[in-house]
Structure formats: C-alpha cells, structure tokens
Nucleic acid binder design. Structure first.
Lengths: 120, 120
DNA sequence: TCAATCGCTACTGAATTTATAGCATGAAGA
DNA sequence: TCTTCATGCTATAAATTCAGTAGCGATTGA
C-alpha cells in the first residue's frame, strides 16, 4: 500500500545516473558525487564513531535530511554502519577513505599552485 | 550591463559550500562532489583531448548545460584547459586523475565485496 | 514527571541538474 | 555565394536534489 519509491542507490554492476555501462567506477562517482558524501566519509574516519548529531556538527550543520539520505546510501554501499557506538566506517569505508587521504595532501599543493598562478 | 551573477567556484583557502574553514580538501570535495565532475575528468584523461561534443558523448550524453558548467569550474580550478585540440587536462588535472585511478581499481573490489555480502 | 538526548521525518522553498531546442561562428565544398 | 556541416555554447522549462526549520517518538536519568 505504501510503496515508498526507493531511490536506487548506486552499486557497481548496475546502471547508474549518467552511465548505463555499470562500470564500477561510474557507480562510485555517482555515489561520491553527491553533496557531502565524501565529507561525511572523511569526518567519520577522522573523528571516529559518531552519533547522528555529532556527525551533523562536524559537517558544518548540514541538514538532517541530507545527512540521513547520505548515511542510508553509504550504508547500502557497505561503507558505513550504525551500531552501538553510533555511526562508523566499515572496513570498505576505511579503505575508500585511505584513497581520499592523498587527495587531501594534493589539495594543499593545488591551493598553492592556484595562488601562484592566479593573481585575483 | 549584464552582470551575470557568477557562481563562486570552490578554491582552497576560501569558504565553500558546506565548510567555512577553507580547508583545501573541503574545496576539493565541493568541486568534485558535483554531478559529473569526476566523470568528466576521468573521460578527459582516458580519451585524451576532446571536443565539447565528444566529451558529451563519452559522458553518456549529459546535457550541454551541465557539461559547460563543469568545464568552466574545472578550468577555473586550473585542472582543464581549452585550446587547439579541444579540451584537455592540465598537469594539475592529470595529477588529480592519477589519484582517481586507484579508486577505479578499488571500485572493482567493492563490487565483488557487495556481491558476496548482499544477496538481492 | 520533567528535561535532555537520540535518530529521524515532514514540510517548504531554493538550488542544481536534466532534457530539448536552437543560435552564432567558422571551415569546406558546389 | 549559397548550402552544409561541426563547433561551442545559450535559453527555457521541467524534474530532481538539497537546505532550513520544526518537531516527533523513544530512551535515559533525575
């Protein structure tokens, strides 16, 4: 009766927004290319297990609507879990975070490069 | 006369959507956490220099509106340039792409992990 | 019972993305 | 010159997503 139209959550092997091939990387881009997805994963790994509201605070007070949506997606993707100590990154989520870390370092260099290039 | 309200493009050192700290990684997350941003960078590095329409085709025919918007952002970010041979990744863009590559490999493992976990 | 915290939903309006059509420019040919 | 074609890109409207705010039901503790 109350068929909540569940939005398909991107998973490798399935067509996703913007790619019908089902290439895993495209599913990942779809999942991570949503507002706050990477930020939440980042916070969760930096801060450790957190409650919903703590996470919200870490993420500059993003709306609970979005936080909850992202958390559902991340859980469906097997990256995050919700247990005793609140939300925490699963092994897969930690692996992915480790791939994000070098991007953090790169971003610093990027900032410097932009400074020396542009003069605005 | 026609003061087009230019959307601020995320750059490290400046407050961005969802983060007032100006942390470079947050600017990067903001930039890349937009639909198709990573996909375009991926295509540009995989396929080499491409015209607007080629790029559009690679990206499953995304709308020119979004493609143009993303390209402007990526150009402002110093990742992509538009020259003789069409659009192409700049050194910074290639560096960032190199950080995306391991994510491509990881995504494959991710897909396998999901298969063996979930049974739907 | 009261207050405080938890995860989370409802609702509304704003922003972003999509889809489609089509314009202006320039090169190449007839 | 007059098409024809490809280029990059804009205009418009509809659909989707996100943000901001209020608040609910459950739990915990005083």
């Amino acid at each position: 009766m109350n068929e909540k139209k569940t939005k398909p959550i991107p998973r490798p092997g399935q067509p996703v927004r913007g790619s019908k091939t089902g290439e895993p990387i495209m599913a990942l881009f779809d999942l991570m290319g949503r507002r706050w997805a990477m930020g939440i994963l980042w916070a969760l790994n930096k801060q450790g297990p957190s409650t919903f509201r703590e996470l919200q605070a870490y993420c500059d007070g993003l709306s609970p609507t979005v936080l909850n949506t992202r958390l559902k997606e991340l859980r469906a993707a097997g990256l995050v879990d919700h247990g005793e100590c609140g939300y925490q990154a699963l092994p897969l989520g930690k692996e992915l975070f480790e791939l994000l870390v070098p991007m953090g370092r790169w971003a610093v260099q990027w900032g410097k490069a932009l400074e020396s290039t542009k003069t605005d």
